[in-house]
Design a protein around this nucleic acid. Structure first.
Lengths: 146, 146
DNA sequence: TAGAAATAGTTTCAATACGAATTATTTCTA
DNA sequence: TAGAAATAATTCGTATTGAAACTATTTCTA
């Protein structure tokens, strides 16, 4: 817990908060929450995904995703139906309103998009790749997967 | 939302999850939660801190910290008293049991500590500093503080 | 092939998490 | 110096969060 290791931890927490804040801003603009937005985005990129896969992609527990999907279904943004291949499984997809919501969230007004673009313009690509590579390795060490 | 910006976002989320998991493990060993542990740690490093400053250091809302401190006070790990200088403010400090808990959480059994140490051993110091520097700059861009 | 094990989701529970409204106090300013 | 504005916490309401227990279904295996 001493020295530079602690710095890494605090730095990651701050970075994550900053990102989350922007996601929340975009989400609030269309009247949903951060996690709901991320779920819609994931569904936009890959329709007919299972709840488990969704949870894994977002790094969330599936109890969590299960509840959040509940609210999205109630709000009429996501459709949930039992898989025909595996009746234990649930398959999720966007409704038209859901598609509309996600597109509106990430339209030209999206602050997250603007800022991410600015990051891409500020750093050399190889710097970013270097950053991602180090972070990936650190994460593997943390998870005991080196 | 496209390209490498999205990668940065997902990478940070994964890294943060990995760190949080280890903090949770240490916290569970002494019967408290992640956030409670981080509060105790912050109090260990700086006694007699105000709730506001604590929230800022941890990047949490003070409504959140207020509630969590409640639980820590109930558990007898933290003492809360009104500041003599400013009667609006609350000053927090560790109780003996609180000090004991935090030291036990980060003793030689701490997985977080071991893994952070392994990270320090794996990377060259300048690599880590480079990583921290890029992350700091990215965060500032995200917050619009370049 | 019957029972065990594994898998997919849901439910439950306690603890975050944060914005907004509120209370109490302090500081500012006309 | 009285009222306004600012500051420090708390309270409230809603939405995550994840572990654990549970149900339902599928797959494995003796």
């Amino acid at each position: 817990m001493e020295g530079i290791g602690k710095e890494i931890m605090y730095s990651v927490f701050r970075m994550q908060k900053a990102l989350y804040r922007l996601v929340r801003e975009d989400a609030a603009r269309v009247g949903i929450t951060e996690v709901q937005l991320m779920i819609l985005y994931t569904l936009l990129k890959k329709e007919n995904i299972r709840l488990n896969d969704l949870a894994e992609k977002l790094n969330l527990s599936n109890s969590n995703v299960s509840g959040t999907v509940d609210r999205l279904v109630s709000a009429g943004l996501v459709a949930r139906e039992t898989s025909k291949q595996d009746r234990r499984a649930v398959v999720l997809s966007l409704t038209d309103r859901g598609r509309q919501a996600i597109q509106e969230a990430f339209n030209h007004e999206s602050v997250l998009r603007k800022r991410l673009k600015r990051i891409e313009e500020t750093f050399k690509e190889e710097e970013i790749l270097q950053y991602l590579s180090i972070q990936q390795k650190m994460k593997d060490i943390l998870l005991g997967e080196e």
